[in-house]
Design a protein around this nucleic acid. Sequence first.
DNA 1: GGAATAGTGTCTTTTAGACATTATGTA
DNA 2: TACATAATGTCTAAAAGACACTATTCC
Lengths: 250, 250
Amino acid sequence: MSDVNEEEFLKNYDMSKYPNIAVTADLAVFTIKNSKLSLLLVKRGGHPEKGKWALPGGFVNIDESIDDAASRELYEETNVTVDNGYLEQLCTIGNPYRDKRGYVVSVSYVALIPRINKFFASDDAEEVHFFSADDVLSDSFDLAFDHKNIVRKGLERIRSKIEYSPIAIKFLEDDVFTLSELRNIYEIVWGVKILSSNFRRKMLSVPNLLIPLHEKKVSDIEGGRSSDLYQYDNAQEIYPPFTRRSLSEK
Amino acid sequence: MSDVNEEEFLKNYDMSKYPNIAVTADLAVFTIKNSKLSLLLVKRGGHPEKGKWALPGGFVNIDESIDDAASRELYEETNVTVDNGYLEQLCTIGNPYRDKRGYVVSVSYVALIPRINKFFASDDAEEVHFFSADDVLSDSFDLAFDHKNIVRKGLERIRSKIEYSPIAIKFLEDDVFTLSELRNIYEIVWGVKILSSNFRRKMLSVPNLLIPLHEKKVSDIEGGRSSDLYQYDNAQEIYPPFTRRSLSEK
DNA sequence: GGAATAGTGTCTTTTAGACATTATGTA
DNA sequence: TACATAATGTCTAAAAGACACTATTCC
C-alpha cells in the first residue's frame, strides 16, 4: 500500500463499501398513569409490522447524533418531550434478522416523564397510547420487532435505578411534592407496600436530596392530616441505596 | 399511498435510502497485570488516526450480530478471546463528527479477562499492548477517536459492578483461588485497602458465592500461613452489595 | 367523635467497620 | 525464634424493619 497521508486517504474514502445498515433510536417512555406504571406506545402506520404497537422511534439522520434522533423522533411521532423528565441510553440491538427490511440497528433509550395529557399521534404513528407496563409485558400483548425485550430491560433498569438514583422524582408532576407522593411512586414502580415512617427517615437522611418547604399541601379530596411539602435539592445519588429486596408485596 | 401488503412492500424496499452509516463494535478489555488494572489497546495500522492507540474493534458485517462482531474483531486484531472472562455491552456513540470517514456508530463493550500471555497483533493492528488503566486515562495519553470517553465509562462500570455482581472473579487466572487473591482484585480495581477479616466475613456470607474446598494453597514464594482454597459457586449477585464508599485509600 | 392520613419515637435486627487474638506457614 | 500472612472472634456503629403512638384534617 502506498504511503498516503490522512488527508489524501480521506479524500478518496468510500463509506458505501460498508454494509447497508440503518440505525434507529427507540424509546421506552414510562410514566405513572391511573396509579400504574405505564408505557407510551405508537401504532405503526406503515409496513413492516403495520398495525402493531411499537416503541416510538425512528431512523437516525446523517446530520444528528443518535441521542438527538431519540428526542426528535419521540416528538415527531407523539408530540411528547422529556424536558421535565429523564432520558438515558438503554442498550443496542443489531443483527440481520430483527427487521425484515434489512440490517437495522436499534439504539434504545429509557425515559421517565411526569403524567401528561398533551400527546397525540403524528408522522408515521397512527395512534398513541399509554399502556400499563404489566399489560404490555404479558404474553398476550404483541409488540412489533423485538421491542418487548427492550421494554423488559427498560423496566428492570428503572426498577433498579430508583434504588440509588433520585430519578423517581421525575415521575412527579409538580416540583413541589409530599413524601407520600414520592413514596407512592416507589410503591407503584416496585409493586410493594412501604412503611411511611421508614421511607420518611430514609429519604430525609440522604444528604441534599430534599428541601423542606415548611408548608402544608393544600387539602386534596382525601381525609387525613395534610402533609409537608418538599422540593428536590441536588443530590445525584441515594447512598446507601434504598433497596426493594426486603419489602413485602403490595 | 396504495394499499400493498407487507410482502409486496418488502420486495421493493430500498435500504440504501437511509443515510450511509457504518457500525463498529469496540471493546474495553480489562485485566490485572503487574498488580495494576490494565487495558488492552491496539496501535492503528491504517488511516484515520494512524499510529494512535485505540480500543480493539472494527466494522460489523452484514451477516453477524453486533455482539458477534465484538468477539470476532477482538480475536482478529489481538488473538484474545473472552471465553473465561466476562463481556457486556457498555454504550453506543453516534454522531457525524467523531470519525472523519463519515458517520460511524460505535457500539462499545466492556470485557474482563484473566491475565494472559497469548496475545499478538494481527489484521489492522500494528501492535497490541496492555496499558495501566490509570496511564491511559491520564491527560498525556492520546487515544484515537473518542475512545478515552469509552474507557472512562468502562472503568466506572467495572468499579461499580463488582460491588453487586461476582464478576471480579473473572479476573482470576485459576478457577480455584484464595480469599486473599480475590480481595487483591478488589483492592486493585478500587485502589483501596480492605481489611481481610471483614472481606472474608462478607464474601462467605453471600449465599452460593463460594465453595470451600477444605484444601490449602500450595505455598507461594511468600512467608505466612497458607490459605484455604475456594471455588466460585453460582451466585448471580452480591446482596447486600459490597460497597467501596467507606473504604480507605490504598 | 370517628376515620384517614401525616408525622414522631423507639425497639430490634442486620450488616459492616475496627481491631485484637490465635493459627500456621517460611526464613 | 522472628516474621508474615491467614483465620477467628468481638466490640461498636450505622442503617433498616417493625410498630406503637401522637398530630391533623375532613366528615
